[in-house]
Design a binder for these strands. Structure first.
Lengths: 86, 86, 86, 86
DNA sequence: CTGCCATTTTACCGGC
DNA sequence: GCCGGTAAAATGGCAG
């Protein structure tokens, strides 16, 4: 390949590739910031006496719709009784 | 506790708790959207013939500073030769 | 280094390294087999009408000691009531 | 259901369920022990001057067959040159 | 066969 | 500074 440049190595379009990579890097950066914000909220809550682990369970439960949540809880309850786990 | 309300159950300040939970939920929502965007970029790149797995490696390598990257690569190379893995 | 061999590359003791790697590989192999066995049990249970997801929760609950389990469940319950999540 | 016992709660066969759970628990126990063994090997290697992170990469590379490994490495190399990452 | 979800592994962060 | 636990990433199994 005669006119091979950094933008076109072995048939790979370097410009296009770099553009994708940079878009991803920007998005990863944003995501990282949001994760830091979330950690901060948990930390603040903890400072006011709340238990972060339990809060995470609440977040999960709220994310499920009510019907699913109830169905799942009832089934778990049933299984627990079946094996005698209180 | 006589005046126990939904906002103050067993000494737990429901309003404060709910506020934390909602802040977290908003942030989680944003994060989720960004993750979707990232997946989309990989998907688009894949559609144009790039290999997503290799792209992820590039992103990781670029995130490391040059010195660390080179050190790590040299060490791996050394170990490979030590056990005869080409 | 004059007498550098595959067993001693750049000061790295190839024999020792290979021995560690091989021990790890054997253990990883065993682990993989056990994981397959576990999947098989869940699969069999599923074939007999049990819900694997709920079973996994049972396994987790049984792994916690009773005191921890009860404490955690009570705290979650308290928080749920505080934010009005049933 | 009149003769409901701990072995048959709400139509759930407690004995069968418990048997599955216990099989899983035994397997999980074994798996946990093996994981501990693996960690121990890495730790021992570290004590003798090896870098655990790099060792993990070796294990991974050895698990791939030679053709795949070479193909992947060549592709990564190509991409790196295409975006000018040395 | 592809995309999706769960598990597993890796990396990170906070606590001791 | 290290260790443990927690969250993120990557891999692998499963379903459609």
């Amino acid at each position: 390949m005669e006119n091979e440049t950094v933008e076109n190595v072995g048939g790979v379009a370097g410009d296009a590739l770099r553009a994708y990579i940079e878009r991803i890097e920007r998005l990863e950066e944003e995501k990282k910031n949001i994760s830091a914000d979330i950690r901060e909220v948990y930390s603040e809550a903890k400072g006011n006496g709340f238990d972060a682990k339990i809060m995470k369970k609440l977040v999960k439960l709220r994310a499920m719709d009510r019907a699913d949540r109830q169905e799942e809880e009832e089934l778990l309850d049933l299984y627990r009784r079946a094996i005698g786990l209180e």
